[in-house]
Amino acid sequence: MSYPPDPNNPYGQPPAAPGYGYPQQAPPAAPGYGYPQQAAPGYGYPQAAPGYGYPPMAAPQSMPGLVVTARVLLFVVGGVQVLLTAFLLIVAAGARTVANQHSTSSDTAIFGNAAAGVLLILGIVYLLASVLSITLGVKFGKGGPATRITTIVYGSVALLLGVFVLIGAITGSTQAQAQTAGSGFGVVIGVLWIAICIIWIVAMSTRDGVNWFNRPRY
């Protein structure tokens, strides 16, 4: 019959040292030795750097192509409007001269004065439109969101007027039962004007256009 060794007996058998006889549980390995540890951020595995990739609002370094096209069209339309202003004012002056050569109570004088007044108002409208077109085109280089919004409003109003012109030209040609030269010219002008207005609106509404006018200025 065996008895367990007395720990107070100096002559007894010393207890077995850990690691002999029976397998002991291995102590946890120190970080970095024996077992691979999770790589610390910035070491071993590349980390995604914040702020890189595809920024949602990247500021363009140069004016986008569609914005350049809209700017050129603004200058062209502004120049045409200046020519139309000069033409209308000249015709209005001629109508007023013809009216002054007749008695104020005659039909010719009444019609001449009315025509001169209408042509004068149209000339002033075209003059203001030309100033707005050219001013917007100039501000495309350094203008901000206000320039973009003004161009959208200007293009929308002009688009509505172009639709009216196109409808009037198509209606006139239908009532005449034939495609006359005047109605065909009106249809071409209406379609061309609508296309220009759509380019203005689209150029100001695309992401490149928004980023261009929202870019930081120093």
Rank of each mutant, 00 (worst) to 15 (best):
R96D: 01
G44H: 08
Q24A: 10
V77T: 14
A26Y: 08
C197H: 01
T206N: 15
P15I: 00
V157C: 07
D107C: 00
V153A: 14
T104G: 09
I124A: 14
I152A: 00
L132N: 12
I199T: 14
G190P: 07
Y52Q: 12
Q37V: 09
H102A: 15
S156Q: 03
P28D: 11
P41A: 11
A59I: 01
G78Q: 05
V125Q: 11
G184I: 13
A178I: 03
F140C: 04
P216M: 02
A178C: 06
N8C: 02
G155M: 03
P36A: 12
P60K: 01
V138Q: 13
K139I: 05
L73V: 02
R148G: 01
P55M: 03
A146G: 07
A93K: 07
G190I: 07
M57Y: 13
I201C: 06
I149S: 11
V163A: 12
A169F: 03
I201Q: 06
A58I: 04
G19N: 10
G209P: 02
H102P: 01
Q24E: 12
M57V: 00
D107K: 13
N211V: 01
G32A: 05
A178Q: 14
G184H: 09
S205I: 02
L136P: 01
G51H: 06
Y52A: 02
L161N: 10
G155L: 03
I196K: 09
A99W: 04
Y33G: 02
G117V: 02
Y45D: 02
P55Q: 14
P7F: 06
N113W: 04
T69E: 14
L73F: 08
G65H: 10
G65M: 08
A109G: 03
Q13V: 12
I199K: 09
Q13F: 06
S2W: 08
F164P: 00
P46N: 09
S103M: 07
L159V: 00
A39L: 07
T69S: 13
G12C: 01
N211D: 15
T69C: 02
Q175D: 11
V187G: 01
Q175A: 12
A92C: 05
A58E: 11
I90S: 01
V76N: 13
Y154T: 06
